[in-house]
Amino acid sequence: MNTESFPDAIVRARALALHFDDGETQALDGVDIAIRAGEFVAVVGPSGCGKSSLLNIIGTLEAPTTGEVFFRAQPYGGIRDPSLFRRQHIGFIFQSFNLIPTLNALDNVVVATIGVPGAGSDQVARARELLEKLGLRDRMAHFPNKMSGGERQRVAIARALINTPDLILADEPTGSLDSANSAAVLTLLTDIQKERGLTLIMATHDPSVSARADRIIHMRDGKIALPQDPAP
């Protein structure tokens, strides 16, 4: 694709490649994408096609072997502190929730604010507000092992939102949920995305999930498989 076709792209990647095992395994192989601000993009494809790798690179969790990524035209190579960048701009949601088992729901949200200058009671209040909004008013003191999958994922969503990111990267967020919970979580996520004007990039292999996206990027064998749907 021509990544220059979205001049207002929040994320732009050019010729991304990610190799493992001295090049024997190619997780990504020449990926070009552009994501516009406020867009909900679904990245679909079979397991091992490179969806998670793409999200990891966009989320600065991993560096590409070759290629470039830009965030609002700023090259990732120029980011001095990826952690700080993630805190300021990106929220993550994972299939396996990735909550800390020894912290209750509220603390699992607040923990993402530790180390933020000036963070304190405001962040706790904000975490409470988020959890209430996500329907977890009575579950804040519960630990992850005492919560359902849907509840855990909602805690993870609250954690992803606590630092007011611009971009949410969701890697199979409904993959561990039953259909009812899956639908509820998806609705919550998309509602928040629309409400806040967030950009949402979601890796999924569930057609019912991708169907709700503004745009779908198909991947296969580490490459973009089909031309992207035009933006609405």
Binding site: G59, L61, D81, S83, L84, R86, R87, Q88, I90, F92, N98, L99, I100, V111, A112, I114, G115, R159, A160, N163
Partner: peptide, 8 residues
């Protein structure tokens, strides 16, 4: 997880 959510 902590690194992912932005811990420096």
């Amino acid at each position: 997880i902590l690194l992912t959510v932005g811990w420096q």
